[in-house]
Design a protein around this nucleic acid. Structure first.
Length: 488
RNA sequence: CGGGGUAUAGCGUAGUCCGGCUAUCGCGCCUGCUUUGGGAGCAGGAGGUCGCAGGUUCGAAUCCUGCUACCCCGACCA
């Protein structure tokens, strides 16, 4: 990726922001740190929702909905959890407004309406869900509970970025309750697999599956599994997490059940989530200087047809052919937009749909009508080719598959080119400085060492990969033995 | 929350140091004509509490004080 998307974009961040604006995905809201997701951006989110929702249901989950407000005291019940989220909560203190007392006009919270207990706008729903689950669970026959919630959450972040970290964001959060530790761990791992499959097959984004180190773990979890992707600037992005919560929340909310053997035991828990950040990942993984590049499987518009005509007499004939093509494509399940607006010129439209990342563009004009052809342009390579109209639908369907595969391969190649091994402290620092990207290195497994490495180099352990080969080595920092490499 | 920066039309900006005529220019928008295979040309037109609140001054976008919002870097995070 070059950095000349616009003359103003001086770094990757600016490039990304420009891209979001030009592709018409979202804009900053008047509300601090929040964003407005525009119709085209939301269409992508709906697609993500639809696919994930089906995958959740295929793995036995059901949807439910829990309250937006959480009583403050719920947070106080799980010590680590409250510590993790306390600094970024929106707090509701009053229930009504009144005219300002100083008589200058305007409104102020009515002091008489002060809430006895403040309500927290959910930053995540573990607490209120576990408070609810307590009432749902008495016996092993009530387990497992496999619920998912599609919702918005609020985290009062210091610094925000569209899609990647907004004060309010949309997500799904799964919360499950199990009778045994093994079952809960299996659930957490299964959902990570679901996320990884979604990322790779739908987003065309290769991910590393693994475990978070203790320092990076979710507040209140025993183990955090994650998928990590590499963006085009070589930086890592956490694209999804799945947590094994052990019995922490069951103990905090006193959720016990009677086993077959009539023994009272605490329930085992998991939670897992992905958010609108996935859209940020999608943008940063594939886009180029001409705008967004969407993988065909997620594009709200997969094919756009643009008529080219000199005068209004030519249009009906072209439209007839274009609509015929549109119909043939739609029969194949391809989503097609025919843009016959006479308010914009063809060149303008070409640019417009490139900004929007539409995978395939078909242009059809008088010349094509005569010769029985169309001009087909693919967004990923920007190549144009003349296709015969005969059997066009099959050719386009094939092309879409081809683009999907190509995007994945391109992203994978980029990751591989930017992943290096380091076997000594000097080599580690050198690679970090000169190459960046992911570094595979040995680590002694202690939080202290991780912390020291972070302090000295700013590098963090992104994940401890599941599929890392067993390989004896020495920690790059302390020289102590290590069984496998981790990803910095 | 620490460091740096910015705020002028829908968007991007000039002007601010050194106060002074009707606040500059480009994109976009509207009207008309000509155009249409890669962001059209010409002509005309509409659009402004110069972030907010005070202050200094004959006079403030410009100087002073306070506030707010946004952007970048860091810490934190999905």
């Amino acid at each position: 990726m070059a950095k000349n998307f616009t003359t103003r974009a001086e770094n990757y961040s600016e490039w990304y922001n420009e891209l979001v604006v030009k592709a018409d995905l979202a804009e900053n809201s008047a509300v601090r740190g929040c964003m407005v997701i525009k119709p085209y951006g939301y269409a992508i989110w709906e697609k993500i929702q639809a696919v994930l929702d089906k995958m959740f249901k295929d793995t036995g989950h059901v949807n439910a909905y829990f309250p937006l407000f959480i009583p403050k005291s719920y947070f106080e019940k799980e010590a680590e959890h409250v510590e993790g989220f306390a600094k970024e909560c929106a707090v509701v203190t009053h229930s009504r407004l009144r005219a300002r007392a100083n008589g200058k006009g305007g409104l102020e919270p009515d002091p008489d309406s002060r809430l006895e207990e403040e309500l927290i706008v959910r930053p995540t729903s573990e607490t209120i869900i576990w408070d609810t689950y307590k009432n749902w669970i008495q016996s092993y026959r009530d387990l497992p509970i496999l619920c998912n919630q599609w919702a918005n959450v609020v985290r009062w972040e210091m610094r925000t970025r569209m899609f990647l970290r907004t004060a309010e964001f949309l997500w799904q959060e799964g919360h499950t309750a199990h009778a045994t530790e093994e079952e809960a761990v299996a659930e957490a791992k299964q959902m990570l697999e679901v996320y990884a499959e979604f990322a790779e097959k739908w987003l065309a984004m290769p991910v590393l599956k693994g475990v978070k180190s203790a320092n990076e773990r979710f507040a209140g979890a025993i183990e955090t599994f994650c998928i990590e992707a590499m963006m085009q600037d070589g930086k890592a992005l956490q694209a999804g997490t799945s947590h094994f919560l052990g019995q922490n929340f069951a103990k905090a909310f006193d959720v016990k059940f009677l086993t077959k053997e009539n023994k009272l035991e605490y329930v085992w828990a998991t939670s897992w989530g992905v958010s609108t950040r996935l859209m940020g990942a999608l943008i940063m993984t594939h886009s180029d200087d001409n705008g967004l590049v969407l993988p065909p499987k997620l594009a709200p518009i997969q094919v756009v047809i643009i008529p080219i005509y000199k005068n209004d007499e030519q249009l009906p004939m072209i439209s007839e052919k274009a609509l015929e093509i549109k119909k043939a494509l739609e029969v194949k399940g391809i989503s097609v937009k025919y843009d016959d607006r006479n308010t914009q010129k063809p060149g303008w439209k070409f640019n417009e749909y490139e900004f929007k990342g539409v995978p395939v563009r078909i242009a059809i004009g008088p010349r094509d009508i005569e010769e029985g052809t169309v001009e087909v342009a693919r967004r990923d390579t920007l190549e144009k080719e003349v296709f015969q109209q005969a059997d066009l639908a099959n050719k386009i369907a094939h092309l879409l598959e081809n683009i999907q595969a190509n995007l994945y391969q391109k992203a994978l190649t980029l990751r591989e080119e930017n992943t290096h091994k380091a076997d000594s402290w000097d080599e580690f620092k050198d690679v970090l400085e000169t190459k960046g990207g992911f570094i595979l290195a040995h680590w002694d497994g202690t939080p202290e060492t991780e912390q020291k490495i972070k302090e000295e180099t700013k590098a963090t352990i992104r994940t401890i990969p599941f599929d890392a080969p067993e390989e004896a080595g020495k920690c790059i920092y302390t020289g102590k033995p290590s069984a496998r490499r981790v990803v910095f």
